[in-house]
Design a protein around this nucleic acid. Structure first.
Length: 284
DNA sequence: AAATACATCAACCGCTACTCA
DNA sequence: ATGAGTAGCGGTTGATGTATT
């Protein structure tokens, strides 16, 4: 028979989220943690379906999301993981915890796929392709310098706007209070309030490590700073999703991957990634 | 300066997987 | 064992911004 989609309910709003809605959602998740999305619209009064709330959080508001330019290394990771895993964007995203699956998917479709096809037609080697793609893509995206480093930044910005525009809501007060207390670093709260077992997916675990690590706390990291942490602490969770039957179709050029990773691994970070990739390749 | 084409990405849709009663 | 409900994933669309003519 089939259940009607939740979004077909009357009165459910669609389209772009407003700053006010973002604030409400963020403050609710601050209080209750992500999960139980069904109850979010009910408890917040948001005229959005649970799905939309979840997507908004995971793709945009979630702490630790890095926006803007993909680094050459990230590009390389995506290209090779795509070759390895196919269009398993969520799995690929688990290797790049600061990027969302949606983000990676978009980037692949708009930049990498195109360049890859072009390159393939020129019958170049994969490593040569990577160099080409890297420089080409950098040229393409450099004009877009909107590095939207963290969701706190987003929220504080929109908060500023909404506070100027409208009388303070209780949620706005809640957030502003946090900011003024110097705990703009919502991630501290996030850590306190979202213990790892509460959060789902691989990101949160990766993220909690990233957040706990070093001196920056993930949330208010300067874009440049956060870039330094790209692909650090990739404690990839093999939750089964990452390695599935899709791989059977893939014939990954593992030697290239290994070679590339070795070449790239001057930072040492990639060694860990490589070991994960090797694990994957062993399972194929 | 205006019109048009192109690029980007947030958000939606529909499907599958998973959980639980 | 089964079916309903929910979460998550991947493909696609549409709004918006930017470049080009």
């Amino acid at each position: 028979m089939g259940r009607p989609p939740c979004c077909e309910k009357i009165g459910i709003k669609k389209g772009p989220w407003t700053p006010e809605e973002d604030i409400i959602l963020v403050s609710y998740i601050q209080e209750h943690g992500p999960g139980n999305w069904r109850s979010v619209p009910t408890n917040t009064g948001l005229l959005r379906c649970s799905k939309s709330c979840r997507l908004r959080w995971t793709n945009y508001l979630r702490p630790g999301i890095k926006r803007g330019n993909f680094t050459p290394h990230e590009e390389g990771m995506i290209i090779h993981l795509q070759a390895l895993l196919g269009n398993k964007w969520a799995s690929i995203a688990s290797y790049l915890p600061q990027r969302t699956d949606n983000n990676i998917k978009n980037y692949w479709n708009t930049h990498l796929k195109k360049n890859l096809n072009k390159s393939e037609s020129e019958e170049r080697s994969i490593s040569e392709n990577m160099a080409l793609q890297t420089s080409a893509t950098r040229n393409t995206i450099n004009h877009r310098s909107t590095t939207y480093a963290s969701s706190t930044e987003n929220i504080s910005r929109l908060l500023e706007g909404s506070m100027r525009a409208s009388p303070k809501s209780s949620t706005a007060n809640f957030l502003e209070e946090k900011m003024q207390k110097g705990t703009t670093n919502l991630m501290d709260d996030h850590e306190n309030q979202f213990p790892c077992e509460h959060v789902q997916g691989s990101w949160e675990e990766d993220q909690s490590k990233t957040i706990n690590g070093d001196d920056d706390h993930g949330f208010l990291v300067h874009p440049k700073e956060s870039e330094k942490n790209v692909s650090c602490d990739h404690d990839v969770q093999e939750d089964g999703d990452g390695v599935d039957d899709h791989h059977k179709n893939a014939t990954p050029p593992l030697t290239f991957i290994e070679k590339w990773l070795l070449e790239e691994s001057s930072t040492g970070v990639q060694m860990e990634e490589m070991s994960h990739l090797m694990e994957l390749s062993n399972m194929l």
